[in-house]
Amino acid sequence: MSTPASDNAAPSAWLLSLPALVFFAVIVIVPLIMTVVLSFHDWGEYKGIQPVFILKNWIEIWSDPYFGEMFARTFRIAILVTLITAVFGAPEAYILNRMRAPWRGIFVLVLLGPLLISIVARTLGWALLFGGNSGVVNAALMKLGVISSPIPFMFTETGVIIALAHVLMPFMVLSVWAALQRVDPQIENAAASLGAGHFTTLRRVIFPQIVPGVLSGGIIVFALSASAFATPAIIGGRRLKVAATLAYDEFLNTLNWPLGAAVATLLLVCLVVTIVGANRLIERRYAEVFR
């Protein structure tokens, strides 16, 4: 809001936020610029990093289909994870919102569980459940004769998607829940008094109101899964690389920092474009309704 009062307050407000701005610049902006600059440097196995300006890394990413495949996989995983969290998370948030006092707290804790456990422990848990012949779930299913060979989980896209959806579910649920909290508690009664059944009320009254929550949750989940490192690194391993693990390998294994920087920069640019675009769309679409 721009009232005269807040305009007058502006100089001191800037002054007050100066330390935070400096801090932000030093730890975020500067490394970011350095990474972008690095992506234009040259590198050779014997000569190391050469501080010159060339497009070699960018041309390599552009022309080698290997990189295209990595990025396609990254975004395929991110989209599927986003869809899965939306499909399961939105109803979960709705149910959570309707729960009574003790249960709601307990289930919020269960929901937040994955965030409270170290990412390594959690991913190893998935690996223990599904990994190879000896994974608990696979072993049990095979003993029962439900499946004849283990469900491939480790080093597969399916595995990465399931594990990521699990970790990122809280972001979707909390985002939808926040949208639900803004819904008038009497609105379902209002719909009922006008003759709408439960399903119609959900479809025509509740769902349209939580769409913004689903979309903003979707943006968070998409960004986090496209840039996820630990889960794809442990479950996908060397065989199933995504953009983040690819950049990591260039940095630490091949030691080709400039190429890694180019991959990282491209990933960042793709993400920013997607997020800003999606956000624009949401704001334009729902500006009328949700101020």
């Binding site: 609105i187 009664n189 209002a190 719909a191 008094s193 006008l194 003759g195 309704v289 949700f290």
Partner: peptide, 27 residues
């Protein structure tokens, strides 16, 4: 409640925010 055919006006109005006035009334 959906079969009683009673009109209810709530203290908070409980209008459907994603529908226009006409759509609210038409519901």
């Amino acid at each position: 409640p959906s079969r009683r055919g009673l009109g209810v006006v709530f203290q908070s109005y409980a209008l459907f925010p994603h529908m226009t006035a006409a759509e609210n009334v038409a519901f």
